[in-house]
Design a protein around this nucleic acid. Structure first.
Length: 455
DNA sequence: TCTGGGGTCCTAGGACCC
DNA sequence: TCTGGGGTCCTAGGACCC
């Protein structure tokens, strides 16, 4: 089969730069005592493991393992445990991005810990990748692995191999027109043969199981599958993955941040609750938070969804319900969003269940300055006495909107939650757990690391 | 007692409307 | 001989990603 060789070759290689054990690496930058020992970072609510150091992986601690399942091992192996600290990780991610921009203006931050780069065609690709590795490590303290290929999917495959390579680089780009000088270039068929089909970007559990049933267990076999067969089963997305494995680039670099379709804030509670007031407080809090997010983006929401659910792992009766409310005209106003969330809550609340999780989603987002105002506002059609009243109503709406922005600036300057609506609660007994939280070393003045005086 | 959160895209059935 | 059909909205869930 020569499809890999006959496929049209992309002009410039894609590199995937992937931070190693990113959250653990961030924690280690400012806490050297965490180096050379097993470390794990927990999900929100201190629920399960979402990042592991190499030492923790060696202990066979699994990704996604619930903390309470491995408490004995944590203790016996002296594993350091951190709650997640997204303010720190987001800031470190930005530093990595700024460093990578030195190497190519064509960069896509794909996730908090991964970036695709389009590198200039260069006979010394492997050397260039080593430079990237060195500089990111020196400037940010974060170790990265780098995979290179004709397509994003091939770069991903290569980056997985890079993780186990001493140089942390795997170059799978087939350079025909350029002089190949690197000794590290890998035979791509061999690379694909070593990659289990379930490790390919875009192939999840379900499709992986089906492929195995067809006798397809490696990336090499998937690359050579019949187009129609994969399209029928996995749709155009599956077909695209196969073409990408053949070296035909279907997924371009997206350098502009796509406008978001929706924004969600949802949390599991510290403990299950059926308490109406607590649930209202939680939902008001989540509504306030999504409001903050869209105001930061300069968007207004045209719809709000609120949802409640019971614990899916328990034997208790299950209940999961959502309510969608339209916001007309679209708004970013905190008070409006809180009121709608609470109205939605009243539609779905059932006191017979204990709830584990709740959330608020905003959708139909439009730029705030493009929001259509009402074509026939009451003030234009009503007579004088009513006119005064509607003006008052409109003023109240304007007032409330600017109030939201004042809240934002106060909370930005003086810390989150400085000023907030009383509906969001005071004690918040439903709040999630976060018992092992590290300081916000890089984003809070009060958390700046201090260097002790030595004399 | 204890099992994350935030996304995108797709499908599918029922209600409802013209 | 014959039970229309095409659109949107809502809700729910599946599949995938980090």
């Amino acid at each position: 089969m020569s499809s890999a060789n006959s496929a049209k070759r992309a002009h410039k290689p894609f590199a995937l730069v992937d931070c190693d054990n990113f959250y653990v690496s961030c924690e280690r930058v400012f806490a050297p005592k965490l180096r050379n020992r097993p470390v794990v970072v927990l999900s929100n609510n201190d629920g399960c493991i979402i990042s592991r150091s190499a030492e923790a992986k060696a202990l066979d601690i699994k990704m996604g393992a619930p903390l309470h399942h491995i408490t004995a091992l944590i203790k016996s192996a002296n594993v350091a445990v951190c709650s997640s600290n997204y303010a720190l990780y987001g800031d470190m991610s930005e530093r990595v991005k700024q460093t990578l921009k030195q190497f190519s203006p064509e960069i896509e931050m794909y996730s908090i810990d991964e970036a695709f780069l389009r590198l200039p065609a260069n006979p010394e690709l492997t050397l260039c990748a080593s430079d990237i590795h060195q500089r990111v490590l020196r400037w940010t303290g974060i170790p990265v692995s780098i995979g290179i290929g004709e397509t994003k999917t091939l770069a991903k495959v290569a980056s997985r191999i890079a993780k186990t390579s001493p140089s942390r680089v795997c170059n799978a780009f087939e350079q025909t027109s350029l002089e190949q000088t690197s000794l590290e270039r890998i035979d791509r068929d061999k690379l694909l043969a070593e990659t289990p089909v379930t490790k390919i970007w875009g192939i999840g559990k379900r499709h992986g199981t089906w492929l195995k049933a067809q006798g397809i267990t490696t990336a090499l076999q998937l690359r050579d599958i019949n187009d129609e067969q994969i399209r029928r089963r996995a749709g155009v997305l599956g077909l695209r993955t196969v073409w990408e494995l053949r070296g035909r680039s279907c997924l371009p670099l997206t350098m502009t941040i796509p406008t978001r379709k929706g924004v969600t804030c949802s949390r599991s509670f510290g403990r299950r609750t059926r308490n109406r007031e607590q649930l209202r407080e939680a939902l008001a809090t989540y509504a306030a938070r999504v409001g903050e997010k869209i105001r930061r983006d300069g968007s207004a929401a045209g719809a709000l969804t609120v949802f409640l659910m019971t614990n899916r792992f328990s034997n208790e009766p299950q209940y999961s319900k959502s309510a969608l409310l339209t916001i007309n005209p679209p708004s970013d106003d905190e008070k409006t969003l809180i009121q709608l969330a609470l109205a939605g809550f009243e539609r779905i609340y059932n006191a017979n269940y204990r709830y584990q999780k709740a959330g608020v989603t905003l959708t139909d987002l439009t730029p705030i300055n493009e929001v259509q105002t009402d074509l026939f506002p009451p003030s234009q059609t009503s007579r004088a006495p009513e006119k005064r009243e509607t003006n008052t109503t409109q003023n109240a709406a304007e007032h409330s909107k600017s109030l939201s922005h004042i809240l934002d600036s106060l909370n930005t300057t003086h810390g989150a939650g400085t000023i907030r609506y009383a509906a969001t609660g005071i004690d918040k007994p439903w709040r999630m757990r976060s018992n092992y939280r590290s300081p916000c070393y890089t984003t809070h003045w009060s958390d700046l690391p201090l260097i002790p005086t030595l004399y």
